[in-house]
Design a protein around this nucleic acid. Structure first.
Lengths: 338, 338
DNA sequence: CTGAAAGCGCTTACAG
DNA sequence: CTGAAAGCGCTTACAG
């Protein structure tokens, strides 16, 4: 262990200058003679001095730390492949701006008050939220208290305008459904997640919009709600295979659901895509590598992370003047789609 | 935005006590009369006062923040399913101890010095490292500078004793290989990851140890190094299928490799497990849900996170008196193993 | 270009 | 049980 931590006063003494001058050198102020700067820098090097971040914070304003809050439910699976690229994107932007990330994964039900402290106690400058459900009260609390935040994915419908980044889920589901329609399918099922996330609602909307374009009214029998997991997809598909007039095409709200559905279909000895075509959502790493390869809708997750970070930095200076950001969703054809 | 932030002096004035007393109330000191405490608490409530964490840090010692450092390589995939449970485990323990996590995902090659600052500038009390390669200099730097850290997974071989938690990879690979041997297999291939992680070396060791027990010398032709990905497994398996006397059983260093290998095997119209049996590593969510279900070796990732956090808290008080923690790896039989 | 001094918001002996 | 005061390690007008 280092003996006693050296501080700015020690450096000042050693360099024969005042603390003010050392501080100026540290902060790259132009009001220091080159000679003095060098002298001080040398001592700093020599003694491996690093100014205390907390002491600096206390004098300055911003903390340069942001909290990344990710609520989740016990046993959740769906977002395994979501967080790493998201965090990577966020990190990339924040790093450049010398911001650090405080990470909180919160098992639901969590207590918002506890995490608001991070801001109220001056530890963070604000929040980036991810994986937040539509009825989560946290965004509204932040909004009311004028605490800077950005949400990855839409959240509450009560807030009129708040900063978020999201994928164009409606368009993504629309395009996938449209593909089926153009291929001649008319009985198209939707495996709808049964969680209260906005993206599920939107994928549902995209699906119905496409049907509407072809004058088709959504058939409630073809819309099955289940968990977004493989097991959920399996269960949902089993139900669909039992109805009188089963679908010839299936859009799933997640690739895991789609994989579960594929299992169910193959188990009953139907062929994919010959008997039933299928498209998932998320474009998981494995999609291209299963049999048959799974068509999907890709989100630009890392890009969302970057945009979320940028938007956050923006609202710090412009609390009211901002635009939510919608990133494209891209339909990726693979053999399962027929 | 709140007007001006209220501070301890304001509260003291409002409550008609000294700042010292307010501080005592905040910190739950017993040396305050019940009456005074109530009075102060009421004002604190009323004005929604939250003591500045940084100011507290400056007076107290520890920061109650830990850095979680995760280096990774561009395009890496393997650990998608690793981080969420790991972080969850770490969070659970640290939360209880009122510790926060500062997260840094570092794209290689990263500059260790940059991240050491987090400690030197007093932002964090130390580090938890994950996904660190054997030749990464970071652990050694931390060690030499007496900076508290815990590694998830073994790292450098140069350090004699350092705090880490790990899976018993040797035993895991040993058990899987032994299963094959007991089933009568004698030509058992190893799909070895080509990355410089200690777990790969250890899985290799477990494999050879089991062979040795049966008096079998490892056949270099049956050990193929490739990336830990699906594509890597596919490539490796293709090679193996081309040799004169192909293996009848395959142990892969990751499930993704195993899945790639399965693709290659099925593509050549061999049957799993009839012609070739296969076991992976990691016990991914999808393993039980593909055809045939993939046998694997399970690590207790969330548990590792917990143990890492516990160990970290321990070494903070006992820098030299600690024991590394090895968690069990469990062979999970599924049909692919035969 | 440089320094003395006040201040950031707390904690903690010390004295009573 | 309570308060006055020093101190944690910085930054930043202010004066020169």
């Amino acid at each position: 262990m280092r003996k006693v931590k050296i501080n700015i006063r020690d450096i000042a003494k050693l360099a024969n200058v005042s603390v003010a001058t050392v501080s100026r050198v540290i902060n790259g102020s132009p009001n220091v003679s080159e000679k003095t700067r060098k002298k001080v820098l040398k001592i700093i090097q020599e003694y491996d001095y690093h100014p205390s971040a907390f002491a600096q914070k206390l004098s300055k304003a911003k903390t340069q730390i942001i909290a990344l809050l990710i609520p989740y439910e016990r046993g959740f699976i769906l977002s395994d492949a979501f967080f790493p690229p998201l965090i990577k994107g966020i990190t990339e932007i924040l790093d450049k701006n010398e911001y650090n990330i405080m990470l909180s994964m919160l098992e639901a039900p969590y207590i918002p008050e506890k995490y608001i402290q991070l801001y109220k106690r001056g530890i963070v400058d604000g929040y980036i939220l991810a994986n937040v459900k539509k009825d989560d009260p946290f965004p509204e609390i932040l909004y009311e208290e004028n605490i800077p935040f950005v949400s990855v994915g839409k959240v509450s419908t009560k807030l009129k305008k708040y900063p978020y980044v999201d994928t164009d889920n409606i368009k993504g589901a629309f395009d996938a459904t449209l593909y089926f329609l153009e291929k001649g399918h008319r009985r198209i099922a939707l495996l709808k997640g049964n969680h209260n996330y906005s993206f599920i609602q939107e994928r549902y909307e995209g699906y119905t919009l496409a049907l509407k374009k072809y004058g088709i009214r959504p058939d409630p029998k073809l819309i099955v709600e289940e968990s977004l997991t493989i097991d959920g997809g399996y269960k949902a598909m089993k139900k669909l295979l039992k109805i009188n007039n089963p679908p010839t095409a299936v859009l799933a709200c997640s690739d895991y659901m789609a994989i579960g559905a594929m299992n169910a279909i193959l188990e009953e000895n139907w062929e994919i895509p010959e008997d039933i075509s299928i498209i998932g959502f998320d474009d998981l790493y494995i999609d291209a590598r299963i049999e048959p390869p799974l068509a999907s809708v890709r989100q630009e997750i890392e890009e969302m992370g970057k945009e979320a970070a940028k938007l956050f930095l923006h609202i710090l200076d412009n609390p009211t003047d901002f635009e939510p950001k919608i990133l494209p969703a891209t339909f990726i054809w693979r053999r399962s789609a027929g």
